[in-house]
Simulated scan of single mutants.
Amino acid sequence: MADVTNEAFEGATAVLIAGGGPTGLTLACELAVRGIPVRVLDQRGGPHRESRGKGLNADSLEVFGRLGVEERLSAIGARGLVLRKYFDGAHINDTPTDAGLLIGQWQVEEVLRERLAGLGVRVEYEAGLAGFVQDETGVKARLADGRSIRAAYLAGCDGGHSTTRELLGIPFEGHTEEKPTMVVGDVRAPGLSRDHWHQWYTSDGGGIMLCPMPGTDTFQLQASPETDGRGEPLPPTQEGFQRLFDRHAGMEGIRLTEATWLSDWRVNVRRAARMRDGRVFLAGDAAHVHPIAGGLGMNTGIRDAAALGRTLAAALADPVAAAEPGGALDAYEAERLPAAEALLADTTERHRRVLAAVREPGRGTEAGLD
């Protein structure tokens, strides 16, 4: 890739990125390989080791090929996963699938951080965005610890609860279901085969899934929530995971241990009303959240980052042309806002298909890949 040379930003920050997840890290790599000065801020205390989004599709791998990390990711992840389906406790079938590269989100982030470090950029943790002002020449960001940073552009890659989006006052249009649909976590399950993604479903529509995460001895767990006597969902716990496993899988002698990530998930279908405000942009979950069916979340954020990287590189190379109507600064939203709208509709339909499929013996998450 050709370097962008801009004397005005030599030794300074051209692009400030809020958020050190897959979207922010991909954008940082896209810019750094072009020689663009970039800083990455993250409000967390440090990196996580949670599986979260767990797959990369062909589009993401193409992006990572350009960035020089595809081989490293492929060496960590796995392909050709077999879905082992059970229904009301009985093994029904095994379904091969080739939906891309199975890999934990934390592993993707680790590889991208290593690539960034090789380019002289390190994620700055405990650096939460508290506010910013922008003018015709740049953005001045204020951090939670009182520091300030000036940059030409700011990219909000800071997740579904984006501080950047909230500070801009951009509506997050759509809906969120009140109750969690699923509990999720990372667990160990000694004695359970790691050759399959186990999917136990029951005729009442409930179930539990355990997916072996490559390069680890853990499984990602996804299950219908436990409920109390009033039918209200209970928060996820390791003990609750075991009860759900015993109820749906019924495999004696398998004990789930060392739950290192416990969370829940609810249907959330929202997108930002716009993805740009002057010199500030939104990407990834900060701009859109949607059902998980099809595994498109992390992958769509990576596509956003690639598009935003092109936009910002062009804007820094020729600021005057980029600012013209229909120029590079307009191109990002023109490309990615319709993509986000289509994504919400697509994943909502995929989610509907999966919910119907799991009530049929021998069917499961592959219904969301069709």
Rank of each mutant, 00 (worst) to 15 (best):
G207W: 00
A144C: 10
G65W: 01
T5H: 14
P190L: 15
E258N: 14
A99M: 09
A130L: 10
Y86K: 05
Y125F: 15
Y332K: 06
E252R: 07
W197D: 00
S148G: 01
D98S: 11
E30A: 10
T216C: 12
E258W: 00
E110N: 08
G53R: 01
R266G: 12
E50W: 14
Q238K: 02
F245A: 03
D145H: 04
L61R: 11
E324C: 05
E324R: 13
G326Q: 02
L31M: 08
G55L: 15
V358T: 15
G326Y: 03
A259Y: 09
I36R: 01
G206M: 09
E166I: 11
S148L: 00
V40C: 02
G159P: 03
A130Y: 09
F132I: 04
A155T: 04
A317E: 10
V15W: 04
F219T: 06
R39M: 01
I208R: 04
T176K: 08
E335Q: 13
L41I: 10
V69S: 02
A328R: 03
G191D: 10
G55T: 13
G160Q: 10
T257W: 07
Y86G: 06
L329I: 03
R188M: 15
V133I: 08
V139Q: 01
G191R: 08
G295R: 03
S193M: 06
R142K: 14
D318Q: 06
D217E: 15
R44W: 06
A331E: 13
A356R: 10
E232K: 14
T257V: 13
F245K: 00
L262E: 02
L282C: 06
M209L: 14
V354R: 13
R255L: 12
R310C: 08
Q134F: 05
G100T: 01
H198N: 02
W197S: 09
A99Y: 10
R49H: 10
R271G: 08
G128H: 01
H196R: 02
